[in-house]
């Protein structure tokens, strides 16, 4: 579906995107994670054909991006971070207009509006919508022509928990319909929940790429934490799951029924990101 080989690009004479190589399979949700200015959006701009003066190979839907024509956009849907809507038009008119730009099979506008709970506000002007409503409308705008490939830029950015949940459910529903989805985000929780694979982007380079689960597991991220009392004072012990049998204190505490609390602790994708890149997400 998407393949890049040794992708390089810069806005200036100084290298910015450096030797990016990755591929995304059909039906996969792939996430680009990184702090602001890391190069995520630039990579997305290259993948959607806004930037073409790159070096290396970039193939999307079997087309080299440098050679695409406008029909390329019949098969991809893009949801930019900020809503791109006509404020003076109603939600329905917005969708009807954007739908009219495509020639292939279209999705039912009523169904799309219902899916994001905007059906009853369909005739309200987009300019009168709240931020959450605009984000939902913007998302379904990218789906009107039923594209096989979706690019989502910070899809949950600035949304309240309820709208964020709704958006994530919609994304998962599109995946279950067989869509390939590229997400650009700096929200690690969303990425861990939604993405099949993620790539950590820092300073225009991929620092790590794998499934969120594998990235966490590779860093020995799981540990067992237990507390017990000794000489009247509460103490804490830790060990990794693989070494439980070698932890003599833990073995003794279990044998003597002296454990006060015990639980496992997993690192988050954000912790792993910091370990791998030495950078915080901001």
């Amino acid at each position: 579906m998407i393949t890049t080989e040794n992708l390089n690009f810069s806005y200036t004479s100084k290298p910015f995107i450096k030797n990016i190589t990755f591929s995304v399979n059909n039906g996969e949700i792939f996430g680009f994670l990184g702090p602001s200015g890391a190069g995520k959006s630039t990579i997305q701009k290259i993948l959607i054909g806004i930037i073409k003066n790159y070096s290396g190979k970039v193939s999307v839907n079997g087309c080299e991006i440098k050679n695409i024509n406008n029909s390329f956009y019949e098969h991809i849907g893009i949801d930019f971070e900020f809503p791109t809507l006509y404020d003076k038009l109603s939600a329905r008119k917005n969708l009807e207009f954007f739908s009219s730009l495509y020639s292939g099979k279209k999705r039912s506008i009523d169904e799309l509006l219902k899916s994001v709970d905007l059906y009853n506000d369909a005739d309200k002007k987009a300019g009168e919508f709240s931020k959450g409503m605009k984000s939902r409308l913007n998302f379904i705008k990218a789906l009107v022509h039923d594209p096989g490939l979706l690019f989502l830029d910070e899809p949950t950015s600035g949304l309240d928990p309820a709208n964020s949940r709704l958006m994530k459910d919609m994304i998962m529903k599109e995946k279950s319909n067989g869509k390939t989805i590229i997400i650009t985000t700096h929200n690690m929780e969303d990425a861990a929940e939604l993405c099949d694979r993620v790539a950590f982007i820092v300073d225009g380079q991929i620092k790590a790429m794998d499934t969120p689960h594998n990235l966490i597991m590779k860093k020995n991220a799981y540990e067992i934490i237990y507390t017990y009392k000794e000489n009247g004072k509460e103490k804490t012990g830790r060990c990794v799951p693989e070494n439980t049998a070698d932890d003599n204190i833990l073995k003794t505490l279990i044998a003597q029924n002296r454990i006060l609390t015990i639980h496992s602790k997993e690192q988050t994708l954000g912790d792993v990101f910091m370990d791998v890149t030495g950078r915080r997400l901001s």
Partner: peptide, 17 residues
């Protein structure tokens, strides 16, 4: 200003269109 220009350029309208 409202971003629709940017969006239209990544539809079959394209930048030239």
């Amino acid at each position: 200003d409202n971003g629709t220009a940017k969006y239209l350029m990544v539809t079959p309208v394209g930048k030239t269109g």
